[in-house]
Design a protein around this nucleic acid. Structure first.
Lengths: 205, 205
DNA sequence: AGAATATCTTTACAGCGGTAACTTTCCACC
DNA sequence: GGTGGAAAGTTACCGCTGTAAAGATATTCT
C-alpha cells in the first residue's frame, strides 16, 4: 500500500466518491476536478484509470448492471417470484441511486464500451428471464409481451419516480403514511397480475 | 414589445433550440453559449430572459408541466378513461422528449421558481384527478392508493424506458414488431385493471 | 541492480457559466 | 417632437471544467 505518491486504490475510490456525489447532486454537477481534489490527487489522476469523464460514468454503469444482474439471478435461483424480482429491482435502485440513474441515462454514456454493453446485455437478459415467467404462469396473462413491458415499466416507474422525489412531490406518497417503498412496490406491482393462487381475481369480470 | 431589435423573439427561440438540443443529446451537453451562437446572438443574451442556464431549464420544465396539465385536463373533460389519460401521458412524452426529461429531473432545476412549482402542482393535480377515478371505478380495485401509484408508474416507466432507448436495447420492443408505442402502452397499462366493460380484452398478438 | 511499467504530477489550452459595465434600440410620456 | 428610461444585446473578464502532452515517481519484473 503506497502512501504518498500512489493513492493505492484510486480507481475504486473514484467510483465510490462519484456515486456519492451523483447520488446527492445528480450526474450533471459531477466534476472530475472536484472529485480529485477531495481525494487528494491531482485533477488528471483519474484520467489514467478511466480515460475521460464519460469513462467514469461508463464504469459506474457497468458496475451497476453487474450488480443488478447478480441480484436478479440470485432471486431467480432462490425460486423468487416475478413480484420478488420487481421488488429486488426497486431495492437495487434505492441501494444504489447513482448507479441506477447513470445506468438508464444513455446520453451520459458512450456506446463503444464493450464491458458496459456486455454487462447491460447480461442484466437485461436476467430481467427478461425474470419477467418471462409471466408467459407460462398461472396468473392468466394473455398478452405475454404486454405483460413483460408492464412488469418492467411499473417497477422502473416506481423506482424512478421515488428516486427523483417526484412521488413525494405529487402527494401520492402521503397516502401510504410511513409504509416503506418496497412494500408500496409490492402492493402496486401486485395489482398487475394478482396473486399466483387465484383467490381474488385482478379484474372484475 | 420589442420584436426585431436584433433577433426578435429570443426567449421562444432559445426554448425551442434548447428542446431540440436536449432531445438529441440530453441535458448535459446543452450549453448556453453554443445555443446563443447558433441563434446568432452573444452568449449573454439569453441571460436577460432567463437569468441563468438553470433558468432556461426551469422555463422548459414549466412549459412542459403546463402542456401536460392541459392535455390531462382536456382528456378528462372529454370523458377520457384512466387508460386514455395514461396514453395521453406517454404521447406527451414522445411529443416533447426534452421537456419530459427536464421536468422529471429535479437535479437540473431550482426549487425556488414559483411559476415552475405552480405549474408542477397543477399538473400533478390533474394527474391525481385522472388516476383518482380508479378509487370509485367499476374495475374493483381494492387498494386505491396502490392503484394510483401503479397507474402512474406504469405509464411513466414506459415513457422513460422508451425515450431513453432502453426498451429497444432490452429486446422487449421487438416482441411487438412494428406496433407503435401508444398501442403498446394501452395494451400494457390495460393489464393493470382490465377493461371497464368486459367485452373486448386487450388482444393477443 | 537495472529496466520496464503503472501510476500520479505538472503544465497548458479551449470551452463553459456567471458577473459587471457598457451600448444600442425601442417605447412611453411630456 | 424631442427626451428619459426601460428593454435587449454586447464586450471584457473571472474562475471552473475536461482534455491533452510530457515529466516525475513508485512498483514490478528480470
Amino acid at each position: 500500500m503506497a502512501d504518498d505518491y500512489h493513492h493505492g486504490n484510486l480507481r475504486a475510490a473514484v467510483l465510490e466518491k462519484a456515486a456519492e456525489v451523483i447520488g446527492r447532486e445528480g450526474p450533471y454537477s459531477f466534476s472530475l476536478r472536484s472529485l480529485a481534489l477531495e481525494l487528494g490527487v491531482s485533477h488528471t489522476a483519474p484520467r489514467h484509470h478511466f480515460g475521460s469523464r464519460e469513462g467514469v460514468l461508463n464504469a459506474l454503469a457497468t458496475e451497476g448492471f453487474r450488480e443488478l444482474g447478480d441480484r436478479l439471478r440470485a432471486n431467480r435461483d432462490a425460486g423468487g417470484d416475478f413480484l420478488d424480482a420487481g421488488v429486488e429491482y426497486v431495492r437495487f435502485a434505492t441501494d444504489h441511486p447513482a448507479h441506477f440513474d447513470v445506468m438508464f441515462t444513455p446520453s451520459l454514456l458512450g456506446d463503444g464500451d464493450e464491458e458496459l454493453n456486455a454487462a447491460r446485455t447480461a442484466a437485461f437478459g436476467e430481467l427478461r428471464a425474470g419477467v418471462d415467467s409471466l408467459a407460462d404462469d398461472d396468473r392468466g396473462v394473455e398478452d405475454a409481451a404486454a405483460g413483460m413491458v408492464a412488469g418492467w415499466s411499473i417497477v422502473h416507474g416506481v423506482a424512478t419516480l421515488a428516486l427523483t422525489g417526484n412521488l413525494d412531490r405529487s402527494g401520492l406518497r402521503d397516502l401510504f403514511r410511513d409504509t416503506d417503498l418496497l412494500s408500496i412496490t409490492r402492493r402496486s406491482a401486485g395489482l398487475l397480475f394478482g396473486p399466483r393462487t387465484p383467490s381474488s381475481p385482478p379484474q372484475k369480470e
